[in-house]
Design a binder for these strands. Sequence first.
DNA 1: TCTGGGGTCCTAGGACCC
DNA 2: TCTGGGGTCCTAGGACCC
Length: 418
Amino acid sequence: MAPAAAATILHADLDAFYASVEQLLDPSLRGIPISVGGAVVLAASYEAKAHGVTAGMPGWKARELCPALRFVGGHFRDYQRLGDLVVAVFRDFTPLVERISIDEAFLDVAGARRLFGSPAVIAETLRRRVRSEIGLPVSVGVARTKHLAKIASQVAKPDGLVVVEPDGEIAFLRPLPIRLMWGVGPVTQARLLSRGIRTIGELADTRSSVLHHLLGRAAGTKLGSLAANADPRRIETSRRASSVGAQSALGRRPADVDLLRASLGFLADRVASRLRAADRAGRTVTVRVRFPGLRSVTRSVTLPVAISATRTLTEVALELAATALADHPDEQEITLLAISVSNLVGEPALQLELAFDLGDDRLRPGTTLGASRWAVHRSVDAVRSRFGREAVSYARTALDGQGRVPDEFRELAEHDPG
DNA sequence: TCTGGGGTCCTAGGACCC
DNA sequence: TCTGGGGTCCTAGGACCC
């Protein structure tokens, strides 16, 4: 049934990216187990992975598994710089590059074959160039669809190339563990395992009614069709974010007003300035509060108009956080605060926000306080872009001993590939 | 001694409209 | 005059991705 298309989609994935960069920058780190990040492992070198250390693991657990583990500080600006250099190499082969994170991209090289050779040849050339010109190992999967290419690059790791020809797809997929599929995380994996489903082949053989019952309608349908090897997604060279957010882990702190004001002010400032920089604004504000034990709750509100002003966002966020805390009177401490703005509109209709203000606890149209606020924020943004973020800081947002995470890391995580 | 910061998508129930 | 179906939006929570 599937149209006889050629395998022209590449998925390129830099191996243990942050750790590889550290080993590139400091030769004394090569060949030894290292972790980037201390409290949480952001990336582990392959020498560390051999001991079972994985990204996302708490630092103390990683040390337990690998006592010789070296913890190294992150050179976040270098990650961004080198990641950009790698993508520039990709663009030498085709403009059809979809960057999905700092260290990962899809390419469609269908139109590049006459110039550069078969997709397999292109993949080898690309790997060689990234290695020789930048110094980093990259694994590549080549296949007819994005899903297959992504799985192929996982199989290729570390530092390898796997090509899946169209007539070999089923044989390639069937024996692989379900965990390699896009969308199968720990929970889904456990649910499927409980039914004895271990491989993609076994998943493909499972009746769709069983999958719906096990995973819900959409997830069941999606996984079923992926396992059956149907994936219509195309390369998207640009995509606009549909939400903008920021969060801060706090350790265990009493949930008092000062902490809320300082933290939410800081977060609202980050979110709102990013919105304004992108000429966007959003109607829905969501606040997440996390309590000890990783229990978290969210409260959200959809406003009649889209906002992008720091003060307005701060006040809405404070209201929402207060609601969340009021609903959980037994919780004395919080461990994280987050703000997210969604329901975004492009070119924000500024006049609307100008005619809009937050009263004591109720939204009320009719005042123009927003106008001066907006003007203030605009000039603050301008000063910062010229002199750097530290040049101006909102009185309320000067955090005491907080904001542990460097701004460079936050910016890296935004992964806005221009 | 339960961990970072940035996202996407889905579900389920309820409100509301036609 | 308590009965139908469909659609959209909103809210809270959860799984998953890098």
